[in-house]
Amino acid sequence: MGEWQGYRLEDLLMFTPEVYFRLFERYNGMVWPGHLVAFSVAIWMFVGTRDSGPRQSRWIAGVLGAVWLFIAWAFFLRYYAEVFLAAPWFAAGFALQGLLLVVAGGSGRLRFAWRVDAVAGVGITLLLYSALGHPLVGIFAGRDWNGVELFLLAPDPTAIGTLGLLLMSSGRNHWVLAVVPLLWCLISGATSWVMGAYSGLGIPLAAVVALASMACRSLGPCR
């Protein structure tokens, strides 16, 4: 890592916004018609979390973990690594998160429900934003439909949606499961900032909202 000493944040951006957005166009072309599957699974997750039993929660966590593992391989290693030397590290982070979700789901530690408290409400909002809001923000900012970033396929909405699901789970925080999504939101937000793609600033904002909600729950007022 000695090669990187002395560089500033903006020096680390190795590609143009055009190249970055083209990655998603090519990635979407590769995974099509996976979008239909992803959208169906997203609806199943949303409905299923209304009051999921232990068995359904295991399934939701397992599928979510598999999605993180898939993105690690399909997006980071196959596409992003072509233009960004740090992409294999991101892939490792996503793979780790995938395994953590599978293990946590399998052990029954996650139980999703739309409880009527503020934190769960924030979680539902983040989940909806990741599935609907985030893709639309990109389109309204001038991105091509071919490059749309979808929940359960692209890293950013998947990280935001995962944070939303964690806020909806069983009345307590899962800090270990939140670390990678929070870090990714920070990294992706910084990337958007340096690229001048300000439509991506919703990503770190979502992380701040999630972090504040978790802190609120931990400290008591939001229990």
Binding site: L13, F15, V19, R22, V83
Partner: peptide, 13 residues
Amino acid sequence: TWITFNVGTDPLL
């Protein structure tokens, strides 16, 4: 070629 030629395998670019 810093940044400008880093386009990966994208055939169009």
